[in-house]
Write a protein that binds this DNA or RNA. Structure first.
Length: 572
RNA sequence: UGGCCCGUGGUGUAAUUGGCAACACGCCUGACUCUGGAUCAGGAGAGUCCAGGUUCGAUCCCUGGCGGGCCAACCA
């Protein structure tokens, strides 16, 4: 039972409002068709999940279709393993494209033919300038460009050259196909944009069939047109490309109503980065263990960290869609994750920093198996597991304070505390290492009447702490993950020559080698999620946990009002 | 310096053909509690970037500033 998240439905965002208008006006015969066009040259990250949920969500809401299309128009850096990983991630996210999995490279022949048509129509020409010349002739944002000397080359000559480009007669960079638009156009993307370049490179799907490859501005709109997309949704930085999007469609003669591009703000989240290029750098420079490092904002990383697809969906719903550049607070992601996991994760007891407690009045060798509920009452789910109670237990070192201050409700000399699912105990004696002075053991008495009951005399016990039986506890490694960067915007305000990597959070991973967890955790398969009470949500690591070894990844901490009290106390 | 886009509490979104700014996260209080969790109740916090204009009335329309973003890869 998760809380209903559809009540108090928010009004449609500007894109949904547009789609709704189009659906009602019958602009596309009532049809809605969207797509997600990843380039298979990297892993999907949470920013992509936003784009996916916009396009996929809209298709679903309006009874439309959704295509997954790989935009594999540049063989450099693209490969099948990236495509496979993207497919896996999208399936995991819960996206269903049915049988509409497409590859832009399957349209190469059609794209090529349109290229010839453009030449024949005098709308494109083969330019034999060097790369540097082309750059120079393009001008700048403030100065107009100049025409290439090849711009008025006869149609037949361009056509011949274009065919020979395809045939492989030229080296990389010898010629390019360009649209003939306007070298003085205020929009730089309209200054005779490149349509095709020569690239003698093996394509992971097309092999060596092609040595010329279409550029994004030429290919993308046509891919959309071929697939009869109605609403081509992309991020804000493509706004300037919309003009060329429409120009190409006009030039090849795609008639309206036809696909139209609409841009929305891409996702930015505090304390992380979304740039694919920089994510690659983190992997390659060894700052993280891989694309699926639980600190990475990648879908694979989030998955390994223990985040659910449902939480990602909720998060995306929560943040909305607009055309204003924005940066989402990290706490919103955490909220979405907790709001999902709270209702689905069984509770367990785990002690991360063990301190020995001896229950002096409890018989040696006795074991009580307590039926502990898997969920608190308000979650409303059934189920219990058996937790052994014995004379010697481990508690969290931070749950004891020799000189407590007023608001500390846990264990202290002479104070009482509730052991979760077990007895109320009182700390009678603090045993210290004679040399270091470190507290090594607590000797406590228990109130035998308090198992599953409040103290008979009505006295109040304010705190409840978690514990595990020393005899039965299972050792485990616990990986405490935190935000990857220590500043909200790692890419902002960098000094000359400084790298965003300098903002990496040195404490983004703290490994607890020797945690003690309740024995019921030993038998679950890797990839099982829990709430470790009073700590947070954890998932056993799918790779490293198993076969006798237990490894848990912290997905997210619990909301921690204690931490605030403590921080305030230290601060003032 | 050219073109285009954007500017609503700390953050993200609302405000349906102009009608004295709403919701969520966060923050603060309190209640409840065998998780300092969850839940519940309450509160603080913007007068909508600024200045003009149109209007009985402007977050919304107009003009001019200011601030931010994008664009000068044979990347997408």
């Amino acid at each position: 039972m998760t809380r209903d998240d559809n009540d108090g439905k928010r009004p449609p965002d500007f894109i949904r409002a547009m789609v709704e208008r189009d659906a009602e006006s019958g602009k596309y015969g009532g049809r809605v068709a969207t797509r997600f066009p990843p380039e298979p040259n990297g892993y999907l990250h949470i920013g992509h999940s936003k784009a996916i949920w916009i396009s996929y969500g809209i298709a679903q809401e309006f009874g439309g279709t959704f295509n997954l299309r790989f935009d594999d128009t540049n063989p450099t850096g693209e490969n099948q393993s990236y495509a496979d990983a993207i497919i896996e991630d999208m399936r995991w996210l819960g996206v269903d494209w049915e049988d509409r999995l497409y590859y832009a490279s399957d349209y190469f022949e059609q794209l090529y033919e349109w290229g010839e048509k453009l030449i024949r129509d005098g709308k494109a020409y083969v330019d034999s300038s060097t790369e540097a010349e082309i750059r120079e002739y393009r001008g700048t944002v403030t100065e107009p460009g100049r025409n290439s000397p090849y711009r008025d080359r006869p149609v037949d000559e361009s056509l011949d050259l274009f065919r020979r480009m395809r045939a492989g007669e030229f080296e990389d960079g010898a010629h390019v196909l360009r649209a003939k638009i306007d070298m003085a156009h205020p929009n730089m993307t309209m200054r005779d944009p490149l349509l095709y370049r020569i690239r003698h490179q093996h394509h992971f799907r097309q092999g060596d069939d092609w040595c010329i490859y279409p550029m994004y501005d030429y290919a993308h709109c046509l891919e959309d047109a071929i697939e009869d997309i109605t609403h081509s949704l992309c991020s804000l930085e493509f706004k300037v490309n919309r003009e060329i999007y429409d120009w190409i469609l006009d030039a090849v003669g795609i008639e309206r109503p036809r696909t139209e591009q609409t841009e929305f703000a891409r996702l930015n989240i505090d304390y992380t980065i979304m740039s694919k290029r920089k994510l690659i750098q983190l992997v390659e420079d060894g700052h993280v263990s891989g694309w699926d490092d639980p600190r990475m904002p990648t879908v694979a990383g989030l998955r390994r960290r223990g985040v659910t697809p449902e939480a990602i969906r909720k998060f995306n719903e929560m943040i909305g869609v607009s055309d204003v550049d924005s940066r989402i607070e990290y706490s919103r992601l955490e909220y979405a994750i907790r709001d999902d996991l709270n209702w689905t994760s069984p509770r367990r007891l785990a002690v991360l920093d063990p301190l020995k407690v001896v229950i002096t009045g409890y018989p040696e060798g006795e074991v009580e198996w307590v039926d502990a509920p898997e969920y608190p009452r308000d979650v409303g789910k059934e189920g219990t597991r058996r937790v052994p109670f014995t004379r010697e237990i481990w508690i969290e070192r931070s749950d004891f304070m020799e000189e407590p201050f007023r608001k500390f409700y846990r264990l202290a000399p002479g104070r009482e505390v509730r052991l979760r699912h077990a007895y109320v105990i009182r700390c009678d004696e603090v045993v210290k290492d004679p040399e270091s002075g470190e507290v090594v053991e607590l000797r406590c008495s228990h109130d035998p009447e308090t198992m599953g009951a409040n103290p008979a005399d009505g006295r109040k016990v304010r705190g409840t702490i978690h514990w595990v039986s020393a005899e039965h506890a299972v050792p485990a490694e616990v990986r405490l993950y935190d935000r990857l960067f220590s500043v909200p915007d790692p890419e902002a305000d960098l000094e000359e020559g400084a790298s965003f990597a300098m903002n990496l959070n040195p404490d983004s991973l703290v490994v607890v080698e020797d945690a003690r967890v309740e024995p019921s955790l030993a038998d679950d398969p890797p990839g099982t999620r829990y709430q470790f009470e009073r700590h947070g949500y954890f998932m056993s690591d799918p790779e490293d946990s198993g076969s006798g070894r237990l490894v848990f990844n912290r997905t997210v901490t619990l909301r921690d009002s204690w931490a605030k009290i403590e921080a305030k106390r230290k601060g003032s």
